[in-house]
Design a protein around this nucleic acid. Structure first.
Length: 313
RNA sequence: GGCGCGGUACCCAAGUGGUAAGGGAGAGGUCUGCAAAACCUUUAUGCGUCGGUUCGAUUCCGACCCGCGCCU
């Protein structure tokens, strides 16, 4: 019986060597790389996102890098649509798609799908955010409680973003979000999925992050941020993401360089931990202990892919 | 050597004669369209040491140790 083509997913915390591993796998299996890091999708954000360099990108086709204007924004749903489109194209070329990234929600949106609900509404969000600011988060929670008590009980009363999304969904569809969820998700079909998870030793990962951030500053993170700030100001949303946010504070004179470096390192460490919490729940992951640029790790990853391509009889 | 100030968790730090705020870090967790976001949980029988007063001391008293500042 005909089998679906294989889709390889590489996941892991920031600094675990996903890029290095993806290039190795792409070279061995005629792969094409599909980015799954939210901020790497933005143009001109280069150093702070640890995007693959031009040389690295020349070693295999890369997708969904630099596809959003700095002043625009994207969402998990939009990401999933774009990525699925690209997956089909790669399939037609008979190449191996390799999804690489650390944004857990985007990965889930791609593979498991989201419920077919309404997209975000900026005006409504702005209003709700103001209310929350004036009257406190509890106000939103009471509001949601009236519209959709099931969702309200699942969302913590301090979690403003999630409450806003739930209220938005209820209003746009004139139906509780919990009802709309019953329609189920829209999962990706037509692929067999091999997830490879990088699970490096925590202390070692933190050491690598320390060095990597120093490297970013050496490579001109401050200058890059300065340019983005000059060109776009607050309109470039990723300026508030890890690395850029702290450098903006440095450029505004709120902290000195040493404090900025420390803060960026700290933010990356916190992020890596959160990513691991998310990924631990991801199903069917072949976990490999170590970093993606280590020979032993690469060997194991290659074997895992090989196994799926030509399973033992 | 003298005087003054200070010593509370891994770090910063509040505090009271009645049984140790808060923040950060660390660890664990949540996540259905801003997710590199947001949120939740958790961490000192212990307050430099030894005595004393007291029903009760981290708090008051004494001595000592350590740090910082000033004076000689």
């Amino acid at each position: 019986m005909p089998r679906d083509p294989l889709l390889v997913v590489i996941l892991g915390p920031t600094g675990s060597g996903k890029t290095a591993l993806s290039l190795e796998l792409a070279a061995r299996f005629h792969g094409e790389i599909v980015n799954c890091d939210s901020v790497a999708m933005y143009r001109e954000f280069r150093i702070g996102t640890a995007k693959p360099t031009a040389e690295e990108q020349a070693r295999a086709p890369h997708h969904l890098l630099d596809v959003i204007e700095p002043t625009n924004f994207t969402t998990a749903g939009e990401y999933a649509r774009m990525a699925r489109q690209i997956l089909l194209q790669i399939q037609q070329r008979a190449a191996l798609p390799i999804v690489v990234g650390g944004t857990g929600l985007y990965l889930r949106a791609l593979i498991d799908g989201l419920f077919p609900g309404p997209e975000r509404s900026e005006e409504l969000r702005e209003r709700l955010r103001e209310r929350a600011h004036e009257k406190g988060a509890q106000y939103l929670h009471r509001l949601l409680q009236r519209m959709d008590s099931r969702s309200a009980s699942r969302i913590h009363a301090n979690d403003v973003p999630k409450m806003i999304r739930a209220i938005e969904v209820c209003l746009a569809a004139k139906q509780p979000m919990s009802e709309q969820w019953k329609a189920g998700r829209e999962p990706l079909t037509g692929f067999e999925i091999q997830r490879i998870g990088l699970d490096p030793n925590r202390a070692e990962l933190y050491r690598r992050i320390h060095e990597r951030v120093l490297g970013m500053f050496d490579a001109g993170l401050v200058e890059e941020t300065q340019q983005l700030l000059n060109h776009y100001g607050d309109a470039a949303r990723p300026l508030s993401s890890i690395g850029y946010k702290q450098v903006v504070q440095l450029l505004r004179g709120e902290i000195d360089r040493e404090a900025a470096v420390d803060a960026v390192q700290q933010a990356h460490r916190n992020y890596a931990k959160r990513q691991m919490t998310w990924f631990r729940r991801e199903p069917e992951v072949t976990w490999i202990q170590g970093f993606g640029n280590q020979i032993g790790v690469i060997t194991q990853a290659v074997a895992a892919v090989q196994n799926r391509l030509q399973p033992a009889p």
